[in-house]
Design a protein around this nucleic acid. Sequence first.
DNA 1: GTCCTCTCATGAAGATTCTCGTGGTGGAAG
DNA 2: CTTCCACCACGAGAATCTTCATGAGAGGAC
Lengths: 225, 225
Amino acid sequence: MKILVVEDDASTADYIARGLKEQGHVVDKAANGRDGLFLAAGEGYDLLIVDRMLPGVDGLKLVKTVRGAGVETPVLFLTTLGGLDDRVAGLEAGADDYLVKPFAFAELAARVNALGRRASRPVQDTVLRVHDLALDRLKRTVERAGQPITLQNQEFRLLEYLMSRAGEVVTRTMLLENVWDFHFDPKTNIVETHMSRLRGKVDRGFDAELIHTVRGAGYVLRAPR
Amino acid sequence: MKILVVEDDASTADYIARGLKEQGHVVDKAANGRDGLFLAAGEGYDLLIVDRMLPGVDGLKLVKTVRGAGVETPVLFLTTLGGLDDRVAGLEAGADDYLVKPFAFAELAARVNALGRRASRPVQDTVLRVHDLALDRLKRTVERAGQPITLQNQEFRLLEYLMSRAGEVVTRTMLLENVWDFHFDPKTNIVETHMSRLRGKVDRGFDAELIHTVRGAGYVLRAPR
DNA sequence: GTCCTCTCATGAAGATTCTCGTGGTGGAAG
DNA sequence: CTTCCACCACGAGAATCTTCATGAGAGGAC
């Protein structure tokens, strides 16, 4: 694999480059954003490893620019800030994965391999919207008509699935397979129970219902007409 | 979409065919396994809807034969028997989905659309094996050295992920993203806790350890050398 | 070799999720 | 129109999963 490392700290860059070369990869280095951008846009790399903080053009901007130019090369972000917001910003800019410094080399290697294998996955939207309901996959937040809604994990996954298929009838079996990972019938009404709880949070208190029951078939999430 | 319905009961076949035609699909019918096999192998269908019980060549055999001939067309199975074993058999034979009769037409339509969209997904093994440990994704069973092991849902997903990457180092972050669907750091040792419980069931009492800790990086599931 | 620090393992407590049972509602049959 | 039946909603209790707190073990510094 041909990898570009964009990192201003020389010792970190060397540490990464040496390790990756030992694993049989071809590694180029760039010490600042401008050089990085130039190389990333021109040469055919299989992976970019980019520091978040860079002199010149910073990491975020670099990734956005590269993506804007239509380059689909996977990007692994290195960040010193451990905060959630920072990672979200990186992922939203178009990065495929992130790693918080300091990190063990084995961890970097594992991620490099994972990204290399994945190549280019289908892109999917970060924010799902139906009517006045919005769900952010990365921030894991939901709000309706501007009001934040707190959902449990399972409720969130259920809503995410419903919204990703808004307007289509979703059967009980489809939900069991895709939300719960059940490939058999648990013979309980687990779906109804969670749907009931989700309705309590998403529909109750608002003027229009979004979740509708389709008797004999399943459920639909649909904007009022 | 061009769809073939293989169903011996004429009224059911008509019911399905009429509904699908209303949705704009092109539908052919076959009343027995032999005709179905002939058509499925020859014409370029986008989807096969096959009854489990058929005179002549039965549904299971039909699917196996078709798959054996290298035809990748998605298959939706119709079954009257609601038992788990029956569905498993269908999926193992190469079907992509199943539907238990009687069913509402809306449910069939939803599944037909889902399969049409998916087209052909990457195939993955049903049974994962590492050393004397075996995990069956469909039957949701695990056994080691012939002894059955009972796992909770989360434990099962964790082991499934480990086994699907056997021999590779798997980091805590990768586990959080792929097993728990967490795209952020929960700042707890939830991974360690479950790993501990999994070890208790999978490794304890057997002569060789399969789950190994890689300090500073993560875990590996590996056969003893 | 010894101490110190950081990571990991594990049991118990708390939170969430699932199961079960009951009652309600809509559609079909008479 | 009335009755019946199937499907659905929802609260309470049980099971499972997650968090927290603590101790043990590994690796590095001196």
